[in-house]
């Protein structure tokens, strides 16, 4: 690493290439667009997160957006980052923001997990399909969100939070899911994340 610094200092650094993703953001009209500007620092323009850790919220189902915001704001889904922002969203108008993000065309994550991990994840995904469906698209009636094309790092982290009972710790409706997650080895959690992130 120290060598890298020396090399860079002595030459013209062209720097890092950023991939533009703003075309998806669209014009800043509608009541939610301006309010959603606070979200793009982490979730990307239009909710199209470019990173491995922040979820894509473009095209999110409105019921799931609202549940997430209410859970964060109420402290039921503990997050030092999202609790304040969820309170901002409620203050600004959760329906406006839900409508804005729902209206954004979702592009799947640019992260490309290892093909072998995807295949292992596919083989291990049968039990997940009961709630999330064969396609991973989720089911509002069961309260299960669409997992397709989310960043693998985000999916893996959420599964680990479920497994450790750190996501919605007191939520009775998630008991069965958490019991299931406890039976899944950590490396298989990575495979499942790879698989669902690869779905379109």
């Amino acid at each position: 690493m120290r060598t890298t610094i020396r090399l860079v200092a002595g030459s013209l650094s062209l720097g890092v290439v950023l991939v533009a993703g703003v075309a998806a953001a669209g014009p800043l009209d509608g009541p939610g667009a301006a309010k959603a500007l606070a979200c793009s620092a982490c979730h990307g323009p239009g909710g199209q997160s470019p990173s491995n850790t922040m979820p894509i919220i473009a095209g999110i189902a409105p019921w799931y957006f609202k549940k997430a915001i209410e859970d964060y704001a109420g402290g039921r889904r503990p997050s030092p980052e999202m609790e304040p922002y969820a309170k901002y969203v409620i203050q600004a108008g959760v329906d406006d923001l839900a409508a804005y993000f729902t209206g954004q065309a979702r592009q799947p994550t640019a992260m490309r997990p290892d093909a072998a991990a995807i295949e292992r994840g596919r083989a291990a995904s049968k039990q997940c399909a009961i709630c999330h469906g064969e396609s991973g698209r989720g089911d509002a009636a069961k309260g299960s969100p669409d997992l397709r094309g989310q960043p693998p790092g985000y999916l893996r982290h959420q599964m680990l939070l479920f497994k450790a009972d750190r996501r919605n710790p007191a939520d009775e409706t998630l008991k069965a899911l958490k019991a299931l997650m406890k039976t899944v080895p950590d490396d298989q959690i990575g495979d499942l994340a790879a698989y669902y992130s690869s779905l379109r």
């Binding site: 890092v16 950023l18 991939v19 533009a20 993703g21 703003v22 793009s40 620092a41 982490c42 979730h43 990307g44 323009p45 997160s49 470019p50 990173s51 491995n52 850790t53 922040m54 980052e81 790092g153 982290h157």
Partner: peptide
Amino acid sequence: AEWAQHADGWARSIWQDILA
């Protein structure tokens, strides 16, 4: 390390928000 991973994600997103 969890917050450090989030920091990496934040940086990647916000640099793009500013410049891309």
